[in-house]
Write a protein that binds this DNA or RNA. Structure first.
Lengths: 216, 216
DNA sequence: CATCGTTTCCACCTATAGATGGAGAAGACA
DNA sequence: TGTCTTCTCCATCTATAGGTGGAAACGATG
């Protein structure tokens, strides 16, 4: 146990990456890893048990997503501080994580030095959002959000369904589906459903499941 | 420097993950990390300089992909042994890596124990391919490969181009594009271009642009 | 040389997608 | 209450996509 060290909780589902992070942080004498979690539920439990100063959080987690975990924890511990650490997810994840209260967003390509200094800054109460990401965020804020129904239709498009299939899937007529599609194409700034599908994947509006289905 | 240890080269572009891997492997006394590289070109250089027993290789690398790096190295050192280490890439990458001569394919979700035992097995000359991946591979082998032209058309589809646009892009008539699309839809086992686009992304046949600007 | 696969193109046809303009019902909200 | 948004649906039209069958040119391969 280190004296006066920043107490850090590491949440990451890939064991190798998690253990690597822990190993790296362990050598820094002003940071102490007080807990680890490999999914969202565990993260909430560990947070409550350890009360870390800063939580390093991956976004893609089993059981409970990183965003949801942040929300749950912050609903009770409003001053909890999070650094989101991910590979290269879509804008949507960044947006939601920062909305949920994350103080910083780091890519795994970052150096260890940057990681450590970010931990210190966030612990000191600062927010670290790289300019490039801040700009993306501004763009995303400016663009109209999709309605619930439009989001559902978009997911079906990514699944490869035809308008007719989407209609029967959602229990509405094909005409309604067309209306929604026309609206969402405009909002996404694309010309057809194929562009909508790739844009949705790229922006993180819909996730492709690694195996072959779709994950929300 | 450890005695009788397996000499390992670690190739991974994400600094945090790479340094984490190195930290993890360093504590094992029968494995020694003799070099690191963060892109494909560096990997080739490091391999030649260090002559490692086993190379841990990420597939998505700047400058030169992991697959190409493996090919280049094996063209001169045919007994070089590789373990491909990745997050959850498409089938196509797995296929190509194993074709290129990788002896094992591991996901980053694997435990450190599995990683270490895989290193030992591969060093001993074995090949470790998880049954689930072997099956995927068999499926891929069975399915007809796309021709060069079909691949090009597929890429344009993913980029959201219409048949007419694809035609002028590739310098052929729209009719030709339609023919290629009809053929590739059959080969991919999908019904329309939207399904083709998502399938291509999912299977790793086409990579989406690494996002418009968020790289740090 | 003959065959096979690839690439190129055509005509013709049907099905689906997308654009446009309109409209009614339900809930949220000031 | 009036307004706004969302969700629903319709008709109509045009453009694009996709299916089918056929065919010519080319290179590689046996």
């Amino acid at each position: 146990m280190k004296e006066n060290a920043i107490r850090v909780l590491v949440v990451e589902d890939h064991q190798i990456v998690r253990q690597g992070l822990v190993a790296l942080l362990s050598v820094a004498d002003d940071v102490e890893v007080v807990g680890q979690a490999s999914d969202g539920m565990e993260a909430v439990k560990e947070f409550e048990a350890r009360q870390p100063d800063v939580t390093l959080m991956d976004l893609r987690l089993p059981k409970l997503s990183g965003v949801e975990a942040i929300q749950r924890i912050r609903s009770r511990y409003s001053n909890a501080r999070f650094i989101v650490l991910t590979t290269y997810d879509g804008d949507e994840d960044i947006y939601r994580a920062l909305q949920a209260g994350a103080r910083a967003y780091l890519l795994k390509g970052m150096s260890v030095d940057v990681l450590l200094s970010t931990i210190k800054s966030v612990h000191a109460g600062k927010s670290i959002i790289p300019p490039a990401i801040a700009q993306k965020l501004a763009e995303r804020m400016a663009s109209e959000p999709l309605t619930q129904r439009e989001q559902e239709v978009l997911e079906q498009i990514v699944r490869g369904k035809s308008n007719k299939e989407i209609g029967s899937e959602l229990g509405v007529s094909e005409a309604t589906v067309k209306t929604h599609i026309n609206n969402l194409l405009g909002k996404l700034g694309v010309e057809d459903r194929t562009q909508a599908a790739t844009a949705a994947i790229q922006r993180g509006l819909v996730q492709l499941d690694p195996k072959g289905g779709i994950r929300l």
